[in-house]
Each structure stands twice: as structure tokens, then as C-alpha cells.
Write a protein that binds this DNA or RNA. Sequence first.
DNA 1: TCTCAACAGA
Length: 495
Amino acid sequence: MKIKKGFFLGQFITSSPNCYESGKFYFSCHSPLSFFSVSRYYGAISVANCSRTVSNCDSREKIKLELGNISGLDDALCLYENMARIRPFLCVKQFNRLLSRVVNLKEYKSAIYLFKDICDLGISVDECTMNIAINSYCLANQTDYGFSVLGWFFKRGCAPSAITFNIILKGLFRENRITEAQELFRKMVRRGLCELNVVTYGTVINGLCKAGNTAMAIELLRVMEKGSCKPDIQIYNTVIDGLCKDKMIDSALKLFDEMFEKGIAPDVVTYNALICGLCNLSRWREVKILFKEMIDCKIYPNVMTFSTLIDALCKEGLMDEAEDVLHLMMERNVVPNVVSYSALMDGYCLQGRMTEARNVFDSMASKNIAPDIRSFNILINGYCKKMKIDDAMHILREMLRKGFKPDVATYSTILQGLFRSCRCSAALEIFDELQVVGLKPNFYTYCNVLDGLCMNGQAERALLLLDAMEQIVEPLHIAYYNIVMDGFCKAENFI
DNA sequence: TCTCAACAGA
């Protein structure tokens, strides 16, 4: 397969939600596509493995079988190479299956490149292919490019369905473009762009809850209850979870009862949300009641239920009880995962019991559970809080050696540890490194750096950084000013 | 091909 440079240039057009007016999309004509990675991805395919040229019936059947058996990206790309060689072309549904699997592997950019190549081959794509492409863009946080595919959709005379709009709505919420998502939803309703389904409502309700607007999510739930598209268990779960996260557990319990009265049976997700909400408020007696109730209703606690309990007990410092829950779950044949162990590790870290935390971390390896970035970060944070910065640096090196890419939380934690150990220049080097590797400092990073400089008698330097931040971060959080002012006040008192 | 849940950094 040869990927043409400049492929698709001019075929795609960009639009954004703002471009949608009076029922028509207006497009700007620059190409949103970048091609630099194509050769890298395809260069990785072993030619020896992919050299089969296939055109007979057996091969077509074999490919259909292999489509159900893709284990990783290399597999998928290799299979695609073979699929692309077959003439006449395989049915577009087979290409859709491949694309879905690549999206499922969270390889969104590869899915986009494959979609472009499928179009380039001249395969007649269908609505499903385009939805997968739009979804890939949205999941890669490039919803505007998703709109460009939607524009192409319209140009081909296709009417996008609710599925297409649901994908775009979710993309906008993911990118925190709440107003645009709400605007699109309104247009969908008022202009009848498509028939709204339960997923459309679910997407909007979830987006609103995640954006902290649970009240509006409830309003929409009430609209659904009165209308013809009735809320299902997932919708109720979303709202109940939103309320629990807002610490409005009594409203959540009320909705739980209401739902029950409407004949909608709760599931394990409902109970997990409520148990989590009650745990966060230390309402242990009610946690026990709900836990018993769910088992009585034959809704069995899963790994999330137990991990939630472990985490809550750990946060209360009840390590023995947390260990008991871990054993209980194993007795009940629920296999603990990386989250269960990470929660336990964090509990030991909070107590400063680093040997035990490290033991938990090591025990994961013996159980064939791979650590993730979070488990490393928890351990690094534990060592930093104990002022054992060398141990924290050792974990950082260990994670690099094992092929994990530190994220902004890793760097922010490490630089805070370095500042607290009065190793200012090392901390600032980490701050630079974070940006050199292409990560963007976030709120916590800036707080840590400003605070670190102040606590090390460098309030003036913190002020300079604040000035520099004003040029690049818009608008600045009030906390930054508070930290620097506090730094200056403490410096004055010190003098 | 589209909607829900648990662990880290302040």
C-alpha cells in the first residue's frame, strides 16, 4: 500500500458548530489533515509478515475470521494491508469492522489514517464508516475535524442520523465546549436535524453532569420523563452519579426511590454510585445497608464496588478494614485489579507506610497485574510526601525503564517533592523537562512551582513566572496570585 | 458506528 503525500488534500473541508447556520454548513477550505505519522505507522509493519497477495475465496473467508481476532495495532495494520490488496474489494462492512477494532484499541489516529486510505482506495464508504471516522476524530480531541467529515457527509447527500450527532455532541463535551454542545442540542431539537434517541439525551445529561451542571441534567431528565423518549437505567445512573459526586446524596437516594417506583430496576452501577457517595460522606451505616440490599436483590458487587470500599476505608486510615475487603472480594471470586491495589497503595502512602505501599506495588507483579501511570504516581507521591525524594526519583527511572511515559501529574508531584527538599534547580529542570517532552503544565503544576519558589525564598522569581504566565495562560487562576502574595507576606514576616 | 461507575498531583 502506498500512502500518497498530500492525500485527501482539498477533499476534506473544515467546519465547526459555529459554521452551522440556517440549516446549512459553511466550510472553510483549508485541510485539517496532517500526514507526518503515516509513514511511521506503516513503516512499522513487517513486510515479511504482510507479503501475501490474496484474491481467492479462501483468503476472503480467512480475513473475515481474522477480523474477529485482532489483538493489537500491528495485527490490525497487517490485516488491513492484506484487505487492501483484495480485488474486487471486500464489502465495506469488513473495513468498518477493522476500523471499529482500531478505535476499540484506542488507536484513534491510526483509525483516522486507515479511514483516509480506505477512501483513497476508492472503496465506497457508508454512513457507518463515516461515523467511525467522526468518532475517531472526536476521541482524539479533534471534534472540529469530525465536523469536517460531517460536511463531507452532507456533500454526498447523506442525512446524518442521531448516531452521528450523538458522537459530535460527546466530542464537544469531551473538549469542554459545553455551550457549543448545548447549542447543537438545541438546534437538533428545534430544527429536527434528526430524531433524538435515548443516547442523545444520555450524552447531553452526562456532559452536563461532568461539567458540574447537575441541575440542568435533572431538568432534562424531567423533560424525558414527560416525553415519549423515556429515560432508561443508564440515564438514571448518570444523574444519580452526578448527584453523588456533588455530595447531594439525599437527592440521589430520592431519585433512586423514584426510579424504582417507575419500575426501573437498579443495577450494579446504581449501587456503586450510591455506595461511593455514602462512603465519601463517611455514612458507613448506610453503606452497609445498601451493600446488603444489593446482594439480597441478587445484584452482586463487582470489582468497582470493592475498589470503591477499599479506597474509602483507606482514605479514613482504616487499613486493616481495607485489607479485609480485599480478602473478602477474593473469597467472593472477584479479582482485584490495578485500581483495587492502587487504592490500597495510596492508603499506605497516606499513612507514610512506604514499605507496605511498595509491597502492595510489588505484589501486583506476582499476580500478573500490570501497573499503570497512576500506580507509579501514587508511589512517587508517597515518597515525596515522606521527603524521600531519591526514592521518588528511583520510581520515576523505574517507570521510564519499563516503558511508561510520565504524565503531567508525575512531573508536578516530583517537582513539588524537589522544592520541598530545597532542591530548587532540580525542580526547575523538571519543570522544563515537562514542557520539553510536549506536556502542558496544568493548574497544579503552576501552583507547585509558584509555591515551591516562594517557600525557597524566591518570591521575586515566582512573581516573574506569574508575569510570564499572564502572557501564555488566559485567564490566570486567582490561586496563583494568592500563592505569590502569601509568599511575599511570609518573606516580609521573615525579615 | 452513539450514552453510565472505582485509584494519583492542590
